[in-house]
């Protein structure tokens, strides 16, 4: 196989683009896809101060690398979740990435700051671990972004993530969730703008980006996620993708262009339902936000996030 750009030896073939690339031109392709995504959805500008949520995995480290390469001012945020044999090594990948490149990484440890970890929090709140984890992280993303004066919160959700979420939402016709699914959520109710610049790139491409760019990332899967519904949806979509390359991209991006407008009215209604949490002040549809209820049930304290800045 030859690189589509330089005709040198290709290292990766992208069936959905009917294209092969050498390492150098694949990295350039990924940068171009992110630029195109940022422009298409008007996500941010180089004058914005970005906060990238990093887990130590391939997607978040790749998007942090791409954004800094494209000239964006982007700091990182790592959240220690207290998951045995997983959180600490993941954090080391994030810290090493930041230190090697002289980037600023904010670190929040939920055990130290809030007095619970994801396994105990999910049990106490009677939530699935991924639900408790995601909800905790979203709350801390918002607080750190606001306290640090960041304009935009960036997450590493890729095309596979979004296609799988869409698949799940369609399977159960979750119209309120469908109304919210978009690569950009505008700043509102005190929450920062949130963007997903990787939605034009899939997981295999992000892993390849890290291998080619020399980014070490956490290879092991989170033990709490094993066998979850989301992974099954991804498997199903990849089976379709193997038979019909481009299906995932068409499914998600045509939803955005053709399907999402049908849910616009529901999205507007959802915007008016939030009021400040009585405990922490975060926007919530209830008197007490889900995060504060989880912290209370887990026996912790809903204390404010304190930033730890690492060079």
């Amino acid at each position: 196989m030859k690189c589509r750009v330089c005709r040198g030896s290709a290292v990766i073939d992208l069936k959905r683009h009917n294209a092969n690339f050498c390492g150098e031109h694949f990295l350039r392709f990924c940068h171009q896809q992110v630029e195109k995504c940022i422009d298409e959805f008007d996500m941010c500008s180089t004058s914005d101060k970005l906060l990238v949520a990093v887990s130590g995995g391939k997607d978040s480290l790749a998007i942090w690398d791409i954004l800094t390469n494209l000239g964006y001012e982007a700091d990182g945020l790592y959240i220690g979740l207290g998951i045995d044999n997983y959180s600490d090594p993941s954090g080391e990948f994030a810290k090493t990435f930041a230190a090697d490149r002289g980037l600023k990484l904010n670190v929040v440890d939920i055990v130290e700051e809030y007095g619970y970890d994801v396994p105990s929090g999910s049990r106490a709140a009677r939530r699935a671990p991924c639900s408790a984890c995601g909800m905790s992280k979203r709350h801390i993303f918002d607080r750190v972004a606001l306290e640090g004066g960041y304009d935009v919160l960036v997450t590493g959700h890729n095309l596979d993530d979004e296609a799988a979420v869409l698949f799940g939402n369609v399977l159960h016709w979750q119209t309120d969730y469908l109304a919210r699914q978009h690569p950009v959520l505008p700043a509102r109710n005190g929450l920062p703008r949130k963007v997903k610049p990787l939605v034009r790139l899939d997981e295999r491409e992000m892993a390849a980006y890290c291998v080619i760019a020399g980014i070490d990332y956490m290879l092991d899967e989170c033990p709490m996620a094993a066998g979850n519904k989301h992974l099954r949806y991804k498997d199903a979509l990849n089976s379709i993708e193997a038979a019909s390359p481009g299906s995932k991209q068409a499914f998600f991006h045509k939803f955005l262009s053709k399907g999402a407008p049908f849910f616009a009215e529901a999205a507007e209604e959802l915007r008016d339902e939030l009021s400040p949490c009585e405990t922490c002040g975060a926007p919530t549809p209830n008197d007490i936000c889900a995060f504060c209820r989880l912290v209370e049930r887990a026996g912790g304290q809903p204390v404010p996030v304190e930033l730890t800045v690492r060079p």
Binding site: A53, S55, G57, K58, D59, L81, V118, P129, C130, S131, C133, G134, M135, K137, R138, T155, H157, D160, D161, A164, V165, G168, N169, H172, Q174, Y177, E203, E221, C222, M224, A225, N228, H230, L231, K234, D235, N238
Partner: peptide, 9 residues
């Protein structure tokens, strides 16, 4: 393929 926390419906 990864599918852990943060990817919530």
């Amino acid at each position: 393929i990864s599918g852990g926390a943060g990817v919530i419906y």
